[in-house]
């Protein structure tokens, strides 16, 4: 436990001083909040949202796709940088095991994604306030919860890219994997599989809004959660068995 706390502290220190981490955090929060004015353009925009619930669901749809890049690039950076920067050799021969370092990276990623999601949600509400979307009723609260869940699920779905980064030991492989996942998932989902494609599940959940079939949604979301969990476990295994 002490080793994990130490490794977490080290990962946080690296992350908070890195420009990439700062830019990614700001990007995810601000880009999403900037969408808000677009949703007030009436018929001029396909993103027009007249009430809070529609506003949050439309944003959730954007996060489901854009988040694969935003969260995904951070997941890739956390793991691939040790190989690209040559610091991986320094992580051997320590009282803190390599698998503990990898676990700390995963934990830090999840904590960061959660904090970023909360900050993004707050920014979104603040950006939406001046535009008079009517009362903030139970439907809006549900949609807000759905947005937070979709964002977290999207972040969780980027764990396979951490695995690819650990196996390929560079940036290009996992970035290619993100593109491949987005393109192939879109084709398969549009081809009829819909939300049953794990990478497309958050987007379909967002698009359906409050009218989604609860059973299908639970099964689809579970599939995405299992995929992320398996990839997290495989990432730990890859680091435990790592040779350089």
């Amino acid at each position: 436990m002490n080793a994990l706390v130490t490794a977490l502290g080290v990962e946080w220190s690296k992350f908070r001083h890195a420009r990439f981490g700062q830019l990614a955090t700001l990007g995810i929060i601000l880009v999403t909040a900037v969408i808000s004015p677009l949703m007030n353009m009436g018929d001029a925009s396909t993103l027009s949202a007249g009430d809070w619930a529609r506003y949050f669901d439309l944003t959730a749809g954007t996060v489901a796709t854009g988040g694969l890049f935003g969260f995904g690039l951070v997941a890739v950076w956390l793991f691939a940088r040790e190989f690209a920067d040559g610091t991986i050799a320094g992580l051997f021969g320590l009282p803190v095991r390599l698998s503990t370092v990898a676990l700390a990276k995963l934990v830090m990623f999840v904590l960061w994604a959660s904090a970023t999601t909360l900050a993004m949600t707050l920014a979104l509400v603040l950006a939406g306030l001046p535009f008079g979307r009517g009362p903030f009723g139970p439907e809006a609260t549900m949609a807000l919860g759905r947005l937070v869940a979709v964002s977290l699920l999207t972040a969780w779905l980027t764990l396979p890219f951490a695995l690819v980064a650990s196996l390929s030991r560079d940036y290009l492989g996992p970035i290619g994997a993100i593109l491949l996942a987005v393109i192939v998932s879109s084709v398969l989902a549009d081809g009829g599989l819909g939300g049953w494609v794990p990478f497309a599940a958050p987007g379909y959940w967002a698009a359906a809004g409050g009218s989604a079939d609860p059973t299908a949604t639970i099964l689809q979301v579970s599939g995405s959660l299992v995929l992320g969990l398996i990839c997290a476990a495989l990432t730990l295994r890859a680091w435990r068995r790592l040779e350089i």
């Binding site: 502290g9 080290v10 690296k14 920067d85 610091t87 050799a89 320094g90 320590l94 009282p95």
Partner: peptide, 23 residues
């Protein structure tokens, strides 16, 4: 091969980090 040092951190921060990893 490569020094164990992260570019975004100062020399002092890197050394404290390395010492922390040694327990």
């Amino acid at each position: 091969e490569y020094p164990f040092a992260y570019g975004e951190l100062s020399v002092r921060q890197n050394l404290v980090l390395a010492a922390r990893l040694r327990g």
